[in-house]
Design a protein around this nucleic acid. Structure first.
Lengths: 226, 226
DNA sequence: CGCTGCAATTTGACACTGTAAACTTTCCAC
DNA sequence: GTGGAAAGTTTACAGTGTCAAATTGCAGCG
């Protein structure tokens, strides 16, 4: 399951290198500047940190002039939102991978996506911070008809479904799980939750904290139908 | 209990207006620039938002030149850390107030401090974001021998004590509670957790989510001794 | 083929920010 | 008083976001 971590970043990119219009060689127009800028931003975020993520630096890394990004993003906020959106896609893949490698037991599957959640927060702390920055998250998660598949909420929702009592709002269980795991992911980077180690990437407190979810009763087993 | 909210900010300040050295009239040295800058920063944070919190703006609001803060803080990061530290003091008072207005029941007390936690996040979203910004929180919570009373963790710890099973590490329950409430506070500002209303400041999902903590067994009643 | 039009990119400029150095003022200790 | 440290000011410089005005390269059309 740890195989899912450390993925090659470019293989996760969505907009990156689309059909590539057949030998679009050295067009002065660069061709795909927008995805190139997003990738540059992700690289800066990972290698240099959130405070180094600037418009001009992204432009330089993509090999264009400092004002070029203005034609593809609505200011620096737009660039950050686009990078966050790409981050949510990687984030979702982390949870999907973790879930796919789990068994059929609802509790095991829930723990799995939580582990994927935390793996992502550990692997990309600056990207995680950018994505869940109060300002950015509002923009990204409330985009026009933004589907749950764009931010991974669908994976969480799906894994919470077995624990939803009939006749109750699913968002209750979803909020419980999401709050717990997101709070853990945020606070873990404090250092107060114990140091991380290569063989224990989620820290020694991950399992005990997530044990709180073991008490959730199973109302519906998605495998066996109703 | 809602009395505790909307406190006059200056009354919460710690460094603000110390002994005031007896008619320190119009000293060109301003006297108490450091606390004045912190208060200016808090005002900017509340009135204008986190992105407007700059060294020069704080200096202007305090009525000094733009380079004056350099003599009191280690760059802009130092100013932000100092403001966050002041924020943690207010934050702690929010939890203390909420707890003091609760009864003796351990679960009720725990719910109370969680409500104080969320009240603070709702009242000061930008300050909340600054305080729990991954970069800043590390500085503030890991200051030299920073006691738990400086960031409110002592209040949380105290309220979790009744739920700590004998022979187990208290940090487990503390992490469970803190993760849940902090995650809720962070994610609430997404808008996904339902709109806030004046008479329901924590949103409609607060109670259902915190119900997860009702299952915690009480091992020790602090009122009746062991 | 040459021309126009358009979109992408560049260049230049401006305001704002953080930071450092040099300077000025104020006050305290001696 | 005098020296010196502390507190603030002034000046300067490198980055940053953003805008307006060129400039470049391509596509379509005469």
């Amino acid at each position: 399951m740890t195989l899912s971590r450390g993925l090659i970043l470019s293989s996760q990119m969505s907009e990156l290198s689309p059909p590539s219009p057949l030998s679009n060689k050295a067009a002065h127009h660069h061709g795909n500047l927008r995805p190139a800028l997003i990738e540059a931003g992700l690289g800066i975020l990972i290698e240099e940190g959130l405070d180094k993520l600037t418009l001009r630096r992204c432009a330089a890394r993509a090999g264009v002039s400092h004002a070029a990004p203005a034609h593809h993003f609505d200011g620096v906020a737009g660039l950050r939102a686009a990078i966050a959106q790409e981050g949510f896609r990687i984030f979702r893949n982390y949870m999907l991978d973790a879930r796919n490698n789990a068994g059929a037991d609802p509790h095991a599957r829930l723990r799995a996506i939580c582990r994927g959640y935390i793996y992502f927060a550990v692997d990309f702390p600056d990207l995680f911070e950018l994505m869940f920055n109060n300002k950015v998250i509002k923009d990204v998660t409330s985009l026009p008809a933004q589907p749950d598949t764009a931010n991974g909420y669908d994976v969480l929702k799906d894994s919470c479904a077995p624990f939803v009592a009939p006749g109750t709002d699913p968002v209750v269980v979803e909020s419980q799980v999401w709050s717990l795991v997101h709070g853990f992911g945020s606070l873990m980077q404090t250092g107060r939750f114990g140091g991380l180690s290569p063989d224990d990437p989620c820290g020694p407190l991950f399992a005990p904290v997530m044990a709180l979810l073991d008490q959730l009763p199973v109302y519906r087993d998605p495998q066996s139908g109703a």
